[in-house]
Design a protein around this nucleic acid. Structure first.
Length: 274
DNA sequence: ATGGTAGGTTGCCTA
Protein backbone atom coordinates (compact mmCIF):
# COMPACT_ATOMS: atom_id res chain seq x y z
CA UNK A 1 0.00 0.00 0.00
CA UNK A 2 1.32 3.39 -0.92
CA UNK A 3 1.58 5.77 2.02
CA UNK A 4 0.47 8.60 -0.20
CA UNK A 5 -2.88 6.92 -0.72
CA UNK A 6 -3.56 6.99 2.99
CA UNK A 7 -5.49 9.98 4.17
CA UNK A 8 -6.43 11.10 0.70
CA UNK A 9 -8.92 13.85 1.19
CA UNK A 10 -6.50 16.68 1.51
CA UNK A 11 -3.54 17.99 3.43
CA UNK A 12 -5.89 20.02 5.60
CA UNK A 13 -7.04 16.88 7.40
CA UNK A 14 -3.52 16.15 8.64
CA UNK A 15 -2.75 19.75 9.64
CA UNK A 16 -3.19 20.63 13.28
CA UNK A 17 -6.08 22.74 14.46
CA UNK A 18 -4.58 26.11 15.40
CA UNK A 19 -6.38 28.05 18.13
CA UNK A 20 -5.26 31.45 19.38
CA UNK A 21 -6.25 34.06 21.94
CA UNK A 22 -5.45 37.78 21.63
CA UNK A 23 -6.51 40.83 23.58
CA UNK A 24 -6.49 43.39 20.75
CA UNK A 25 -7.36 46.53 22.78
CA UNK A 26 -10.00 47.78 20.30
CA UNK A 27 -10.64 45.77 17.14
CA UNK A 28 -11.22 48.95 15.13
CA UNK A 29 -7.97 50.61 16.25
CA UNK A 30 -6.17 47.30 15.61
CA UNK A 31 -7.76 46.12 12.37
CA UNK A 32 -4.65 46.35 10.15
CA UNK A 33 -2.55 44.57 12.78
CA UNK A 34 -5.14 41.81 13.19
CA UNK A 35 -5.56 41.27 9.45
CA UNK A 36 -1.79 41.06 8.93
CA UNK A 37 -1.45 38.56 11.77
CA UNK A 38 -4.33 36.38 10.55
CA UNK A 39 -2.68 36.17 7.12
CA UNK A 40 0.73 35.34 8.61
CA UNK A 41 -0.27 32.93 11.40
CA UNK A 42 -3.22 31.22 9.69
CA UNK A 43 -5.08 30.27 12.88
CA UNK A 44 -8.28 28.21 12.56
CA UNK A 45 -9.94 29.69 15.65
CA UNK A 46 -9.21 33.06 17.29
CA UNK A 47 -10.55 34.33 20.62
CA UNK A 48 -10.50 38.13 20.76
CA UNK A 49 -10.84 40.29 23.86
CA UNK A 50 -11.35 44.01 24.43
CA UNK A 51 -12.90 44.56 21.03
CA UNK A 52 -14.42 47.71 22.60
CA UNK A 53 -17.42 47.90 20.31
CA UNK A 54 -20.92 46.61 19.73
CA UNK A 55 -21.47 43.92 17.10
CA UNK A 56 -22.72 46.45 14.54
CA UNK A 57 -19.41 48.36 14.76
CA UNK A 58 -17.24 45.24 14.36
CA UNK A 59 -15.24 45.21 11.07
CA UNK A 60 -16.94 42.00 10.01
CA UNK A 61 -16.47 42.13 6.23
CA UNK A 62 -12.70 42.59 6.32
CA UNK A 63 -12.23 39.53 8.54
CA UNK A 64 -14.84 37.41 6.75
CA UNK A 65 -12.88 38.08 3.55
CA UNK A 66 -10.01 36.05 5.05
CA UNK A 67 -12.30 33.04 5.45
CA UNK A 68 -13.57 33.41 9.02
CA UNK A 69 -17.03 33.14 10.52
CA UNK A 70 -17.53 35.58 13.39
CA UNK A 71 -19.59 35.62 16.59
CA UNK A 72 -19.55 38.63 18.89
CA UNK A 73 -20.53 39.59 22.43
CA UNK A 74 -20.03 43.32 22.20
CA UNK A 75 -20.12 46.38 24.43
CA UNK A 76 -19.65 50.02 23.58
CA UNK A 77 -16.21 51.44 24.48
CA UNK A 78 -15.28 48.77 27.05
CA UNK A 79 -14.69 45.02 27.15
CA UNK A 80 -16.30 42.93 24.39
CA UNK A 81 -15.21 39.51 23.12
CA UNK A 82 -15.46 37.74 19.77
CA UNK A 83 -14.67 34.37 18.27
CA UNK A 84 -13.42 33.81 14.71
CA UNK A 85 -13.45 30.37 13.17
CA UNK A 86 -12.88 28.84 9.76
CA UNK A 87 -15.58 26.29 10.69
CA UNK A 88 -19.29 26.97 11.32
CA UNK A 89 -20.01 28.42 14.77
CA UNK A 90 -22.99 27.82 17.05
CA UNK A 91 -23.32 30.25 19.97
CA UNK A 92 -23.93 28.48 23.28
CA UNK A 93 -24.10 31.56 25.53
CA UNK A 94 -23.28 35.23 25.63
CA UNK A 95 -22.28 36.25 29.15
CA UNK A 96 -21.01 34.24 32.11
CA UNK A 97 -23.78 32.60 34.18
CA UNK A 98 -24.21 33.40 37.86
CA UNK A 99 -25.18 37.09 37.97
CA UNK A 100 -28.03 38.37 35.82
CA UNK A 101 -27.20 41.94 36.89
CA UNK A 102 -23.72 41.77 35.35
CA UNK A 103 -23.93 43.72 32.07
CA UNK A 104 -20.21 43.65 31.21
CA UNK A 105 -19.47 41.77 27.96
CA UNK A 106 -16.64 39.48 29.01
CA UNK A 107 -17.68 35.96 28.03
CA UNK A 108 -18.73 34.19 24.82
CA UNK A 109 -19.08 30.43 24.52
CA UNK A 110 -19.55 28.54 21.25
CA UNK A 111 -19.31 25.19 19.56
CA UNK A 112 -17.01 25.13 16.55
CA UNK A 113 -14.73 22.64 14.80
CA UNK A 114 -15.82 19.90 17.17
CA UNK A 115 -14.79 21.86 20.26
CA UNK A 116 -16.56 23.80 22.97
CA UNK A 117 -14.71 27.12 22.99
CA UNK A 118 -15.04 30.15 25.26
CA UNK A 119 -13.46 33.57 24.88
CA UNK A 120 -13.16 35.34 28.21
CA UNK A 121 -11.93 38.71 29.41
CA UNK A 122 -11.47 38.46 33.14
CA UNK A 123 -11.82 41.69 35.16
CA UNK A 124 -8.54 43.49 35.88
CA UNK A 125 -9.47 44.10 39.51
CA UNK A 126 -7.32 47.15 40.25
CA UNK A 127 -7.09 48.94 42.55
CA UNK A 128 -7.13 46.64 45.56
CA UNK A 129 -9.64 47.37 48.28
CA UNK A 130 -12.34 48.49 45.85
CA UNK A 131 -15.44 46.89 44.37
CA UNK A 132 -13.34 46.24 41.26
CA UNK A 133 -11.25 43.68 43.11
CA UNK A 134 -14.28 41.99 44.69
CA UNK A 135 -15.90 41.92 41.22
CA UNK A 136 -12.79 40.18 39.87
CA UNK A 137 -12.92 37.51 42.58
CA UNK A 138 -16.67 36.96 42.27
CA UNK A 139 -16.27 36.70 38.47
CA UNK A 140 -13.55 34.07 38.96
CA UNK A 141 -15.81 32.11 41.31
CA UNK A 142 -18.61 32.24 38.72
CA UNK A 143 -16.13 31.02 36.11
CA UNK A 144 -15.03 28.16 38.37
CA UNK A 145 -18.61 27.04 38.92
CA UNK A 146 -19.43 27.21 35.25
CA UNK A 147 -16.20 25.48 34.21
CA UNK A 148 -16.96 22.70 36.74
CA UNK A 149 -20.25 22.09 34.92
CA UNK A 150 -18.54 22.16 31.54
CA UNK A 151 -15.89 19.60 32.44
CA UNK A 152 -18.54 17.16 33.66
CA UNK A 153 -18.95 16.57 29.95
CA UNK A 154 -16.03 14.58 28.59
CA UNK A 155 -15.69 16.58 25.38
CA UNK A 156 -12.81 18.79 24.31
CA UNK A 157 -13.11 22.30 25.76
CA UNK A 158 -10.88 25.36 25.35
CA UNK A 159 -11.36 28.25 27.79
CA UNK A 160 -9.10 30.98 26.45
CA UNK A 161 -8.55 34.62 26.98
CA UNK A 162 -7.12 37.44 29.03
CA UNK A 163 -7.30 35.99 32.54
CA UNK A 164 -5.65 39.06 34.10
CA UNK A 165 -3.82 36.68 36.44
CA UNK A 166 -0.06 36.13 36.70
CA UNK A 167 -0.09 32.49 37.82
CA UNK A 168 3.44 32.22 39.23
CA UNK A 169 6.53 34.38 39.89
CA UNK A 170 8.04 32.74 36.79
CA UNK A 171 5.36 34.54 34.77
CA UNK A 172 6.64 38.06 35.37
CA UNK A 173 9.89 39.93 34.99
CA UNK A 174 9.92 41.28 38.56
CA UNK A 175 7.50 39.69 41.04
CA UNK A 176 8.13 42.45 43.59
CA UNK A 177 6.90 45.06 41.13
CA UNK A 178 3.51 43.27 41.03
CA UNK A 179 3.06 42.66 44.75
CA UNK A 180 0.39 45.33 45.17
CA UNK A 181 -1.40 44.53 41.92
CA UNK A 182 -4.70 42.66 41.54
CA UNK A 183 -3.14 40.46 38.83
CA UNK A 184 -0.68 38.91 41.30
CA UNK A 185 -2.67 38.79 44.54
CA UNK A 186 -2.74 35.47 46.42
CA UNK A 187 -6.56 35.43 46.08
CA UNK A 188 -6.34 35.90 42.29
CA UNK A 189 -3.69 33.23 41.93
CA UNK A 190 -5.60 30.84 44.19
CA UNK A 191 -8.73 31.30 42.08
CA UNK A 192 -6.70 30.54 38.95
CA UNK A 193 -5.30 27.39 40.55
CA UNK A 194 -8.86 26.37 41.44
CA UNK A 195 -9.57 26.27 37.69
CA UNK A 196 -6.56 24.01 37.14
CA UNK A 197 -7.76 21.80 40.00
CA UNK A 198 -10.93 21.11 38.01
CA UNK A 199 -8.69 19.23 35.59
CA UNK A 200 -7.94 22.09 33.19
CA UNK A 201 -4.46 22.35 31.64
CA UNK A 202 -2.60 25.60 31.02
CA UNK A 203 -1.53 24.75 27.47
CA UNK A 204 1.59 26.91 27.33
CA UNK A 205 2.91 26.04 30.79
CA UNK A 206 2.20 22.33 30.36
CA UNK A 207 4.55 22.17 27.37
CA UNK A 208 7.11 24.72 28.66
CA UNK A 209 7.20 24.03 32.40
CA UNK A 210 10.30 26.06 33.27
CA UNK A 211 10.46 28.66 30.52
CA UNK A 212 10.97 32.16 31.93
CA UNK A 213 10.31 35.36 30.03
CA UNK A 214 7.33 33.91 28.21
CA UNK A 215 5.18 37.03 28.39
CA UNK A 216 1.92 37.93 26.68
CA UNK A 217 1.50 41.53 27.90
CA UNK A 218 3.81 44.52 28.14
CA UNK A 219 2.40 47.80 29.45
CA UNK A 220 2.43 50.76 27.09
CA UNK A 221 3.96 52.77 29.91
CA UNK A 222 7.48 52.91 31.20
CA UNK A 223 9.16 51.32 28.20
CA UNK A 224 7.93 47.90 29.28
CA UNK A 225 8.22 46.42 25.78
CA UNK A 226 11.80 47.52 24.93
CA UNK A 227 12.87 46.56 28.46
CA UNK A 228 10.97 43.24 28.17
CA UNK A 229 9.21 43.90 31.46
CA UNK A 230 6.26 41.66 30.65
CA UNK A 231 3.80 39.33 32.30
CA UNK A 232 2.04 36.14 31.18
CA UNK A 233 -1.69 36.71 31.71
CA UNK A 234 -3.28 35.36 28.51
CA UNK A 235 -3.97 31.66 28.78
CA UNK A 236 -5.54 28.73 26.95
CA UNK A 237 -7.01 26.27 29.45
CA UNK A 238 -7.85 22.83 28.08
CA UNK A 239 -10.17 20.12 29.34
CA UNK A 240 -8.65 16.62 29.56
CA UNK A 241 -10.02 15.60 26.16
CA UNK A 242 -8.53 18.74 24.57
CA UNK A 243 -5.22 18.41 26.45
CA UNK A 244 -4.89 14.85 25.14
CA UNK A 245 -4.76 16.37 21.66
CA UNK A 246 -2.27 19.17 22.48
CA UNK A 247 0.63 19.21 20.00
CA UNK A 248 2.27 22.58 20.63
CA UNK A 249 1.82 25.87 22.45
CA UNK A 250 3.56 29.15 21.76
CA UNK A 251 3.52 32.90 22.21
CA UNK A 252 3.95 34.98 19.06
CA UNK A 253 5.83 38.10 20.17
CA UNK A 254 6.01 39.66 16.73
CA UNK A 255 2.69 41.56 16.79
CA UNK A 256 3.76 43.40 19.99
CA UNK A 257 6.68 44.93 18.11
CA UNK A 258 4.62 46.25 15.20
CA UNK A 259 3.54 49.88 14.86
CA UNK A 260 0.25 50.62 16.66
CA UNK A 261 0.51 47.33 18.57
CA UNK A 262 -1.90 46.07 21.19
CA UNK A 263 -0.31 45.82 24.64
CA UNK A 264 -1.02 42.04 24.44
CA UNK A 265 0.34 39.51 21.94
CA UNK A 266 -1.27 36.26 20.71
CA UNK A 267 -0.98 32.88 22.43
CA UNK A 268 -1.37 29.82 20.19
CA UNK A 269 -2.00 26.14 20.68
CA UNK A 270 -2.12 23.36 18.10
CA UNK A 271 -4.50 20.46 18.66
CA UNK A 272 -4.49 17.21 16.78
CA UNK A 273 -7.53 17.00 14.56
CA UNK A 274 -9.93 14.19 15.28
C1' DA B 1 9.35 59.57 41.86
C1' DT B 2 1.33 58.10 42.51
C1' DG B 3 4.72 59.37 37.03
C1' DG B 4 4.14 57.07 32.33
C1' DT B 5 0.77 55.51 27.41
C1' DA B 6 -3.21 54.10 24.84
C1' DG B 7 -8.23 53.60 23.65
C1' DG B 8 -12.82 55.50 23.69
C1' DT B 9 -19.03 57.28 25.68
C1' DT B 10 -12.80 62.49 26.02
C1' DG B 11 -11.58 66.88 29.40
C1' DC B 12 -12.56 61.55 32.31
C1' DC B 13 -12.96 56.43 32.60
C1' DT B 14 -10.56 51.94 32.02
C1' DA B 15 -6.49 49.34 31.63
Amino acid sequence: MSQSQEGSGGEDRSKALRIATWNVNSINARLDNVLAWLRAAEPDIVLLQEIKCLAEAFPRAEIEALGYRIEIHGQKAYNGVAILSRAPITVVRRGLPGDDADAQARYLEVDTAGLRVAALYLPNGNPLGTDKFSYKLSWMERLRRHAAELVEDDGPIVLGGDYNVIPEPLDCHDPRAWEGDALFQPESRRAFRALLHLGLTDAFRALHPRTAGAYTFWDYQGGAWPLDHGIRIDHLLLSPAAADRLLSASIDRRPRGEPKASDHTPVLAELRRE
